[in-house]
Design a protein around this nucleic acid. Sequence first.
DNA 1: CTTTGACACTTAACATGTTAAACATTAGGC
DNA 2: GCCTAATGTTTAACATGTTAAGTGTCAAAG
Lengths: 162, 162
Amino acid sequence: MAPSKHRPDVFPLSETQRTLPIALLRAREAVMERFRPMLREIDVTEQQWRVLRVVQEAGEIDATQLASAACVLAPSLTRILKTLEARGLIALHRDEADRRRTLVNISAAGKSLLHDAGQTSAGIYKEIEERLGADRIADLLDALENVTQDLGPSNTDVTDDG
Amino acid sequence: MAPSKHRPDVFPLSETQRTLPIALLRAREAVMERFRPMLREIDVTEQQWRVLRVVQEAGEIDATQLASAACVLAPSLTRILKTLEARGLIALHRDEADRRRTLVNISAAGKSLLHDAGQTSAGIYKEIEERLGADRIADLLDALENVTQDLGPSNTDVTDDG
DNA sequence: CTTTGACACTTAACATGTTAAACATTAGGC
DNA sequence: GCCTAATGTTTAACATGTTAAGTGTCAAAG
């Protein structure tokens, strides 16, 4: 590989176009475009889908951890949980030990939806893997996770054990 | 299972967590968090900022090309242009040659805003560069651009002259 | 000139992002 | 028990994302 020293100052639009915010946005759009038809078919938004999957994987989980894992803000999660509960896909109840917390569980209907659409989703992701290469995706995921860690918590250390 | 008495803050890295949509979203959030204070200070949203910068770099540009370059959808751009025009940061007028098109220009106030805040923005980006390494960012940008291109060729309409 | 189809927005309706503020509960100190 | 601070969640207000449908314009054909 040649040393990455390409800075084509000649292009008028290159300055804004070759930046992390734009590049990350474009890449995410390219990926999500593949999933949108499936999501629209089951009448579930992208964020609702993430919430459902996290709830299924985590089992019973409180709203704060759910918001963090599903990458949605607390105000958004409040609305999403209300919608999903109204559709019967999840069940909500107060934590008896700490009545501030809302605990979330997946319902039978939610499990069924995830089981069916999950297969389609996995198929789409496999298509993407075949198109890009599993190793290339793994490298990109590593790079993204490293960037996230190196930029995100300036002070928040995750290592709980001293 | 006993209710969480202590906080298992770190969500176990499940299947959902190591996927392109989530990883791209998290990375973008980590980057944007650095720019948000500056944007809030000048009372400009992230999308409005992108639009302004593209208009400045491109000079006079029509709405369709602007939407594509700034990564916003047409309905969003309509509202954004209305807001920016009301604030006097841009000027809008019909294309005389093709009255379907809306042409956008930067105003003196817009130039002034971009000049001032642009310096801060550049400083923040430089901070990020120093933290991550310029070569590492360049590699990531290359990977992201390649992924974007490799996932989009279902639509082979490239009338983009450079 | 009129029709047809395509293009470039524009509007509408609902969902979420983003920020700030409010509410309910818990934990600790008096 | 009351007060204060902190935590977990909710509400509110505005901006944007997303999809579908509508409006105005251009271009080609009759």
